[in-house]
Amino acid sequence: MKLKQTQQEWLEVGTLGYMSPEYASEGLYSTKSDVFSFGVLILEIVSGKRNRGFNHPDHDLNLLGHACALFVEDRSSEFIDASMGNTCNSSEVLCSINLGLLCVQRFPDDRPSMHSLVLMLISEGALPQPKEPCFFTDRNMMEAKFSSGTRSPITLLEAR
């Protein structure tokens, strides 16, 4: 019996859509990696869409890039899941989008700590403007990783 796990199967069972770019590409992990994952969850909840597999007819950005593009154009309200309708406080949801984007900034040093996030959540002051998020798409990042000659994290198992 031969068990073989393909790259696609590995991606399907992994949590690549929630991994910080520094962890997914270089294996570097810190508390800011958790902040990145938290930001992805915030943006998924607000939009009602998953980061993995997200596609938009007008561009090739992932969910994080889409949220950022709308934020920069002052159109974040278009990012909110339509099923929320009038049942939510729109200013709180827009604040959540801003917080989510702060969490998914490309560089770990730009991301807030979880402690800072809690303080931002309970304060009513203005939030900092987020910088560029990570625009990797799952497929593009993994193709670059595997085609660059690095070892694949995929394990091939063979029975004797």
Rank of each mutant, 00 (worst) to 15 (best):
G48L: 10
E12V: 07
G14I: 01
L157N: 11
N51Y: 10
R111M: 04
K2R: 10
M141R: 14
R75I: 01
A126Q: 13
G125Q: 10
F135Y: 14
M84Y: 13
K4G: 08
P57V: 12
T155K: 06
S83Q: 13
E26T: 04
E92W: 03
I45E: 08
M141L: 15
G85C: 11
K49T: 00
S30M: 03
D81G: 11
Q129M: 13
T137Q: 04
G27A: 12
S90L: 10
C68P: 03
L117V: 09
V40Q: 05
S90F: 04
M114H: 01
S30L: 07
S113G: 12
E143V: 09
S30P: 06
D60S: 12
L63A: 10
C103H: 04
P108F: 04
C95F: 07
G85Y: 06
E92V: 02
S37H: 01
H56T: 02
L64V: 05
N51R: 15
E9H: 05
C68D: 14
L94D: 05
G17M: 04
H115K: 11
G14Y: 00
L28S: 00
E73K: 14
I154S: 08
M84W: 14
M84V: 12
P108Q: 15
F146N: 15
S148H: 09
G39R: 01
Q7Y: 06
N98P: 09
P128K: 03
S90Y: 00
L127V: 03
L157Q: 13
L121C: 14
I42Y: 01
F36M: 06
P57G: 04
E26S: 12
P21M: 00
F135W: 07
S152E: 14
T15S: 13
S77P: 00
L99N: 05
P128Y: 01
H56C: 13
C68R: 09
H115M: 08
S37G: 08
S123H: 06
A159Y: 07
D138P: 01
A69Q: 14
V40E: 00
R50G: 01
L11Y: 08
V72M: 12
E12K: 09
A159W: 02
G100S: 01
E9D: 12
P153F: 05
Y18L: 11
E158C: 15
F136N: 10
L102S: 00
I42P: 03
N55M: 08
H59F: 04
Q105I: 05
F135H: 13
L70P: 04
G85S: 13
S113L: 10
G125I: 05
S96P: 09
F135D: 07
G14P: 03
E26I: 07
L156E: 15
N98M: 13
I42T: 07
S83G: 10
F54A: 02
S76N: 02
S90N: 09
A24D: 05
S20E: 00
V46D: 03
E132T: 15
E78V: 05
V93L: 13
Q7V: 15
R75K: 13
V72S: 02
L16I: 15
F107C: 06
P21N: 02
A126E: 14
